[in-house]
Simulated assay, not measured.
Amino acid sequence: MDWDYLRYIHALATGGTFAKAGEILGVHQTTVLRRLDQMEEQMGIQFFERDREGLHLTPVGETAFREADRLASDMENLERQLIGQDTVPVGKVRLAATDVMVNALIGPLVSELLQAYPDIELEVLTDNDVLNLSHRDADLTLRPVNKPQATLEGDRIATIESAVYGSPDYCQRHPDMDLDNAPELNSWILPDESFSHLATGRWYRKSLKNTRSLVRCNSLQSMYSLARAGVGLAVLPCYLGDITTDLRRLTPPLEGEGVDLWLIVNNETRHMARVRLVMEFLGQRLLGLGPHIEGTA
């Protein structure tokens, strides 16, 4: 027996007429009439007697209705159970971010997250180049971007500000450096072409056209490590440069070089309870780090 037949029997018995059954099922009454004729003919069974007052169940129809009513109740209970399970934060959540964001921003929050929700499994996907962070591969993506695609949903966290940093040793060896008028006379740790889309990449091209002493890196983590080692000066996000005493901030945040930080959610998984919970958890705590990210802490 076609399971769909029971839906029609249940609606016909509940509504009492073809018109009311059609309203329950969301179809035209002629469709209901056609389906009833079809199932009675195929099965050789009369489920309803028809008269001017409406439809009346036959003994066989009453048996079918009882089963249909039981199944309808079971389906409602199953739906409630599934919805209830989905409200429990259990399962894997995939988070994509750059290495430096994991180290300086996300890392300290993960322990707190897993202590609060031990049934969540967090999978962290990292890449040095933010352009390689795919929203399709992750449930959540922490990404610096001023204008997310219109099809993406997420929360703006703060503006990532950057400044010039150098180690105490480098500063001691270059006491007369003049970053306002002659920044190119210093040794610099520069990003390679993979950073050309970032605001800091534009600052380098504008301010350090004639510098000769330089090291190029393809990751902020490498720039951070080399700057701490005293190799040269580097423009770093304030949330990264300010976390260690091995670096000194030598300028205010560079004017006009900020980029927004967004926590973007995958449209296909955004309704899952565990994804919503992790997004809210990280979003609230990252908002609390706003002054740290914007270099005003």
Rank of each mutant, 00 (worst) to 15 (best):
D4F: 15
Y5R: 15
I9R: 00
A13G: 04
G16D: 03
A19D: 10
K20M: 08
I24M: 05
L25S: 00
L25H: 01
G26R: 00
V27K: 02
V27P: 03
L36V: 05
G44T: 00
G54I: 08
H56W: 13
L57R: 07
T58A: 01
E62A: 09
T63P: 10
T63Q: 14
T63S: 13
T63F: 14
A64D: 08
R66H: 11
R70W: 03
L71I: 00
A72G: 00
S73L: 10
S73C: 09
M75W: 11
M75K: 13
L82C: 01
Q85C: 11
Q85F: 09
T87M: 12
V88Y: 14
G91K: 05
L95N: 05
A96F: 08
M101C: 11
N103Y: 13
P108Q: 01
S111R: 09
S111K: 10
E112W: 14
P118E: 04
D119M: 10
E123D: 12
V124Q: 10
N128T: 12
S134K: 09
H135D: 15
A138V: 05
D139R: 02
T141R: 08
R143H: 09
N146M: 11
K147V: 14
Q149W: 14
T151Y: 11
L152A: 11
R156W: 09
I157M: 02
G166K: 01
S167I: 01
P168N: 03
P168M: 00
P168Y: 01
H174R: 13
H174G: 11
D176N: 12
A182G: 10
L185N: 13
I189Y: 02
P191F: 00
P191Q: 05
L198T: 11
L198G: 06
L198D: 07
T200F: 14
T200E: 14
Y204F: 10
K206N: 15
R212G: 09
V215I: 06
C217R: 02
C217G: 04
L220S: 08
A227T: 01
A227D: 06
L233A: 05
L247V: 08
L250P: 08
P252T: 15
L254H: 05
L254G: 05
E255T: 09
G256V: 03
V259M: 08
V265T: 07
R270H: 10
R276D: 04
L277D: 12
F281S: 11
Q284R: 14
R285D: 09
H292G: 13
E294K: 09
G295Q: 06
